[in-house]
C-alpha cells in the first residue's frame, strides 16, 4: 500500500497550476488529499504528477458576494464549520458537515475537493445541487461558472475540463421562506450514508410552494427527484405513491451496506423525516 512514483509540483498561484495541468493530461490536483492519497496508496490510480494547490493564497476565503456566500475551494470542512458567516448565513451546512467523516479528515479535506471529486455518496455534491450553487472554474481561457445541476454528469464524472481547476462554490443566500433540510441514514456515524436527502423547501405560510429533492448515496451522481417533489407538494406524504415515483425517476444502485430496494425504501422514508423536521 505505497503509492506508485509520481512527480510533485507545488503551485504558488492558480495560473501556474492551470498551466501545468494543461500541459500534462495525467496530472491531478492535490488539495486536502483525503480521497486522492488513499486511492494512490491502493494503486487505484497512477497520475504522472500531483499539482499541490494547497499553498495558494486566498483560495480558502469565505465571503459574502451580493446574494451569494462564496466558499473558496481550499476551505477545509473544519474551516467552514467554524466560520461565523457560514453560521449566520448557511447554518444548515454546519450540521451537514458534522456528518462528513471524522474530525481528522475534516481538518484536511477541502470543500472544493469534495465538490470536484463528485463522489455520489458524499453530502456536498448533493447539497450544491439542492442549493442551486454556482461552481466557479478557472482554466486557460479564464473563468466560467457552471450550475451545480449541470456539473455532475455521471459516476465521478463532472464538467471540469482538463485545464480547469475548481476555485470556489457560490451558494445563493436563502430567503426567510427557504429552508435547506437534510437527513441521512448511516450504519455508523461518519460513514457514507445508505441513503441521504437534501431538500430545499420554499414555504408560503405553512404550505410548501416549491421543493427540490436531491439524493446522495443512491446512484451514480446526486439524484434529483423532480416528479416526486411535485407529488409531495400536491398530496403530502404517501409512502407507496412516493416510492413508486422515486423508483421511476431514480436508478437506485445497491452497495455493500444496502441493496437498491433498501435505498429506495430509505429514500422514501427520508421524505417523511424531512417533512417532520419541517414541522418542528
Amino acid at each position: 500500500m505505497k503509492a506508485p512514483d509520481f512527480s510533485y509540483f507545488e503551485a504558488q498561484n492558480i495560473e501556474d497550476a492551470i498551466k501545468y495541468k494543461s500541459e500534462d493530461d495525467e496530472a491531478v490536483i492535490l488539495a486536502g488529499g483525503q480521497s486522492l492519497l488513499p486511492a494512490l496508496n491502493m494503486r487505484l490510480s497512477s497520475p504522472s504528477c500531483l499539482i499541490d494547490i494547497s499553498k495558494i493564497n486566498n483560495l480558502n476565503e469565505i465571503k459574502i458576494e451580493g446574494d451569494f456566500i462564496n466558499i473558496g475551494a481550499l476551505a477545509t470542512h473544519s474551516d467552514v464549520m467554524n466560520n461565523d458567516l457560514v453560521h449566520e448565513k448557511l447554518p444548515c451546512l454546519v450540521d451537514i458537515l458534522k456528518m462528513v467523516a471524522h474530525a481528522a479528515i475534516r481538518n484536511k479535506g477541502t470543500h472544493g475537493g469534495s465538490i470536484a471529486y463528485g463522489d455520489p455518496a458524499a453530502e456536498l455534491p448533493a447539497f450544491a445541487v439542492a442549493m442551486n450553487a454556482e461552481i466557479v472554474l478557472s482554466g486557460l481561457s479564464g473563468q466560467r461558472i457552471v450550475n451545480a445541476k449541470d456539473f455532475y454528469l455521471g459516476l465521478f464524472e463532472t464538467d471540469l475540463k482538463s485545464d480547469e481547476i475548481l476555485i470556489a462554490i457560490r451558494y445563493p443566500l436563502l430567503d426567510v421562506n427557504q429552508h435547506l433540510i437534510f437527513d441521512e441514514v448511516c450504519r455508523r456515524h461518519g460513514d457514507y450514508a445508505m441513503a441521504g436527502l437534501m431538500a430545499k423547501v420554499e414555504l408560503d405560510q405553512s404550505k410548501i410552494n416549491n421543493l427540490d429533492l436531491v439524493y446522495f448515496a443512491t446512484g451514480d451522481k446526486p439524484n434529483v427527484g423532480q416528479n416526486t417533489a411535485k407529488l409531495v407538494i400536491d398530496d403530502g406524504y404517501d409512502y407507496e405513491k412516493l416510492k413508486k415515483s422515486l423508483a421511476s425517476e431514480i436508478d437506485f444502485a445497491g452497495d455493500l451496506n444496502s441493496s437498491s430496494e433498501m435505498k429506495l425504501h430509505l429514500a422514501t422514508i427520508l421524505i417523511n423525516k424531512i417533512l417532520n423536521k419541517l414541522e418542528r
Binding site: 491502493m42 455508523r188 461518519g190 460513514d191 455493500l256
Partner: peptide, 16 residues
Amino acid sequence: MQNATMADYLVPMAYE
C-alpha cells in the same frame, strides 16, 4: 473479498 478496507469493513467506533 469485497470489503477489505477500513472504510467498508465496519468496526464499531466511539459513536457506536
